[in-house]
């Protein structure tokens, strides 16, 4: 017992810092990835054939290759193009780019899920495409795609563990290190598991709440 207490004293701050890094990289990637994904989805609505093809390739490449490989390419391969990023920066950017492909697909399906009639009504009233997207499509879309968005956000939270492989000092890296230093691998892995379960559980609860609030005006 006292051994555990002293361990907590010794490593507490580190673990907290690791947790902080996990949260920062997770939320940073979510915000950047969602923004980028939304931009891509909107571009796909408006742009010409060539741009759409390029975007399609972007999405397919990101969705058919593992995140780890993408991370390696950015972090270890980046210097080839003059892009020498810090591990954390590379991690957040890589995760954001990875997420953007999935977010783009969710937003795209969201755009097409709004009944055509609602758009036609806006058209007949003389509303511009941009106004229609902003005032009619987006609010309704958010209701329909909230579950998918929550799902992606949870997936990204778990992917942050991969950042440990490129030496980002997030939770997995810290606890793995402690485990090997103190020869308590299994205990630290279990604590790590519980941490992620808590994170996922809380996010799921918040997600359900958001879904319920959003679907107040969904008309079937």
């Amino acid at each position: 017992m006292t051994a555990s207490l002293s361990l907590i004293q010794q490593y507490g701050p580190q673990v907290l810092s690791g947790f902080g890094i996990t949260i920062v990289s997770w939320l940073g990637a979510v915000v950047l990835g969602m923004a980028l994904g939304f931009l891509i989805a909107v571009l796909q609505l408006f742009a010409g054939r060539w741009v759409r093809t390029v975007l399609r390739i972007y999405i397919e490449v990101l969705r058919t290759t593992p995140f780890l490989v993408q991370l390696f390419i950015l972090y270890y391969g980046g210097p080839n193009f003059g892009l020498s990023l810090q591990a954390l920066d590379a991690g957040i950017i890589a995760l954001a780019i990875y997420g953007s492909a999935y977010f783009a697909e969710v937003f795209r399906s969201g755009f097409t899920s709004v009944p055509r009639g609602h758009l036609e009504a806006a058209q007949c009233l003389g509303m511009s495409r941009l106004t229609t997207i902003w005032r009619v499509q987006l609010p309704q879309m958010l209701v329909i795609i909230t579950p998918s968005l929550v799902n992606l956000i949870i997936i990204l939270s778990k992917e942050t563990s991969v950042l440990s492989i490129v030496t980002v000092p997030e939770l997995t890296a810290i606890l793995t290190q402690i485990g090997s230093e103190q020869f308590i691998y299994v205990q630290t892995m279990l604590i790590l598991s519980v941490c992620y379960l808590l994170l996922v559980g809380v996010t799921q609860k918040l997600g359900s709440w958001a879904e319920a609030r959003a679907s107040r005006f969904l008309q079937h």
């Binding site: 009944p115 009639g117 036609e120 009504a121 009233l125 009619v136 209701v143 005006f217 969904l218 008309q219």
Partner: peptide
């Protein structure tokens, strides 16, 4: 002005 069979009111 146009009125549609399924109203097409914006639910939000």
């Amino acid at each position: 002005g146009m009125v549609f069979q399924h109203f097409n009111l914006w639910p939000h």
